[in-house]
Amino acid sequence: MKGDSWLWVDSVAKVAEAMADMDQSSLIALDTEYDSLHYFREKLCLVQIRAAKRTYVLDPLNGIDLSFLRPYLANPRLLKITHAGDNDIRILKRDYGFEFNNLFDTQRAAHILGCRYLALSHIVGHYLGVEIKKSKEMQRSKWEIRPLSESQLKYAVQDTIFLADLYRQLDEKLCRQGMRDQAQKAFDGMTAVSWREKTLDMLGHRKIKGFDTLTKGQQERLKRLYRWRFKKAKQTNRAMFLILSDQEILSLSRADWQSGEELQSANLLPSDKASLYGSELGKTLYADG
């Protein structure tokens, strides 16, 4: 892999090494890995920073204080290069209150230039003539589990390696085509994004497959269960489908049960979920008679 030198940052000494490299750099590439599948609020699991010498893989889960990045991300003289960096910026702002200045996003630049396919692998192939493989399975892997596999680390580091060269190609083309000001407005807009917590879709229960097969009373039960599930997911920071799936709350809406004990015996849910949530589910549906 081109320029694949990297360092796992897990000590104060390695933080100092990363800072020394960034101090000597005119630009840095930035990427993150986070889990948005299993959590109600995305969980930040890795931050990757590529400076002049190498990529630094920073682990927000290992106790390293990432606040040292604050002056670099805010520095208007240091260029930050991202690819589809909107969510990276939102999450870093949410978790650390970082400010971002002087951004160049390769996906946004390629879009302005009329590129139809905006995946990093395609843009790198098109502009740099380099083939890289991006696995959806790897992207959705459990990034919070330690130790990370060699494949996960390679995937994480790879995302930063080509961004500087890609920036140079895209920036030159934007300038040649008189689109640099348009692109800059887009980049400035990205630095202003902020994280927003998920909000309840008040009609979301109606979008569940099978809703139209329910009676009016069952539809009302489904609405109550749907809203309970959202509240529980938010409270526990777990993905809604991990609390109860759509089909599970649909089955609960159809069935005739009125207590945690009846729910257990009806086998409508796995025993662990019936035991954990049975009382709350009963109160959700029947507390007001």
Rank of each mutant, 00 (worst) to 15 (best):
residue 9 V to K: 02
residue 14 K to A: 10
residue 16 A to V: 10
residue 17 E to V: 15
residue 19 M to P: 07
residue 19 M to D: 12
residue 24 Q to A: 04
residue 25 S to Q: 08
residue 36 S to E: 12
residue 38 H to I: 08
residue 43 K to F: 07
residue 43 K to Y: 10
residue 47 V to H: 01
residue 51 A to E: 15
residue 57 V to T: 02
residue 59 D to Q: 09
residue 64 I to Y: 11
residue 66 L to T: 14
residue 73 L to T: 01
residue 81 I to E: 05
residue 83 H to N: 15
residue 87 N to A: 08
residue 92 L to H: 02
residue 93 K to P: 09
residue 93 K to A: 08
residue 94 R to G: 11
residue 99 E to W: 10
residue 108 R to G: 15
residue 112 I to F: 03
residue 114 G to T: 10
residue 115 C to R: 12
residue 120 L to F: 05
residue 123 I to Y: 02
residue 133 K to V: 11
residue 134 K to E: 11
residue 146 R to Y: 10
residue 152 Q to E: 14
residue 154 K to P: 13
residue 156 A to S: 09
residue 161 I to Y: 01
residue 163 L to Q: 06
residue 178 G to R: 09
residue 182 Q to F: 10
residue 182 Q to I: 13
residue 188 D to M: 04
residue 195 W to I: 15
residue 201 D to I: 00
residue 204 G to H: 00
residue 204 G to K: 04
residue 206 R to M: 06
residue 207 K to Y: 01
residue 209 K to N: 13
residue 231 K to L: 12
residue 237 N to I: 12
residue 242 L to H: 09
residue 245 S to E: 03
residue 249 I to V: 14
residue 252 L to C: 05
residue 252 L to V: 00
residue 253 S to D: 12
residue 254 R to Y: 02
residue 262 E to Q: 02
residue 263 L to N: 00
residue 272 D to T: 11
residue 278 G to Q: 03
residue 279 S to F: 13
residue 280 E to K: 01
residue 281 L to A: 01
residue 282 G to L: 07
residue 284 T to I: 02
residue 284 T to E: 06
residue 288 D to M: 13
residue 288 D to A: 15
